[in-house]
Design a protein around this nucleic acid. Structure first.
Lengths: 146, 146
DNA sequence: TATTGTTATACTCTATAACTATA
DNA sequence: TATAGTTATAGAGTATAACAATA
């Protein structure tokens, strides 16, 4: 590396978009490091959590909540079904839709993955106290809920 | 949309990685809406800001700071040069490297783009007070600086 | 022997258009 | 006429290997 003084980030560090993205990237790097054995990418993990907490949910509801376009969700769900993590049942009132729920294997996987993901994210945010992390979560939720 | 009660996000909203990403996505959507005329994607904008605030910086320093791999930065810099936003000069002490700096046109562009980007990010975070936003920025910086 | 910048390439992520079955 | 799910495809974004020139 060429010798030189540290770069002046200046203006960038006052931009919420820049700092939020950098923080998210750092957290995801730690996730990749510690969650690799689960073979669940962050977005897949989020989808599986929502299915677990909302049995009978439809793909459309999932996509709307997670901001994932329908064609991209199809791949996730097919993979989940191939691995016997979820099952797709007839929807009680809409024959176009299917109700998603975890299989026993999916529930067992999630039971292990959830605490591991929480621990990973806590490691990545170790610079903050518990109270500071709670504040951060509250502020971020208020940003994306608008 | 199939009728149904709201989805229980439950666990997900306690995950720093999930909420940070969702907030960043929302801010970037607003950026895309208001900054479209600049033809500067967020990562390109960040690179241009760093060049503007650090005249003579090398591509490697830029890539390290922004977490952009060298081959991907090459495309940005070529496009910047084609548009006459930057110039690449011989580095004073390392003949492999080149010192980057804005042209007059690049400086003029940045002078308009910086306040516009700040205003866009502030719009996207309008749910927070000034003091809350300052707290959020501080906490996020501490996360990604580790 | 290591590093800067570069080319070529591949892989992942995300977005769009169009189709079917049903509402 | 609109929506749920799907297919096919295209575009961004990101990552790796290998190279010439220089340190």
């Amino acid at each position: 590396m060429v010798a030189g003084k540290a770069i002046d980030l200046g203006f960038l560090e006052a931009l919420p978009g820049y700092v939020a993205r950098r923080a998210a990237v750092r957290i995801f790097v730690e996730y990749a490091r510690t969650m690799g054995s689960f073979e669940l990418r962050p977005a897949e993990f989020a989808a599986l959590v929502l299915i677990g907490h909302n049995p009978g949910v439809t793909a459309r509801q999932l996509g709307t909540e997670l901001a994932i376009a329908p064609p991209n969700l199809v791949k996730f769900l097919r993979r989940f079904e191939e691995r016997d993590w979820i099952e797709r049942n007839p929807h009680p009132t809409d024959r176009r839709a299917r109700g998603l729920r975890l299989t026993a294997a999916g529930a067992a996987l999630l039971k292990r993955a959830e605490p591991a993901a929480l621990a990973s994210d806590r490691t990545a945010t170790a610079a903050l106290s518990d109270a500071e992390l709670a504040t951060l979560l509250d502020l971020l939720r208020r940003v994306y809920k608008g």
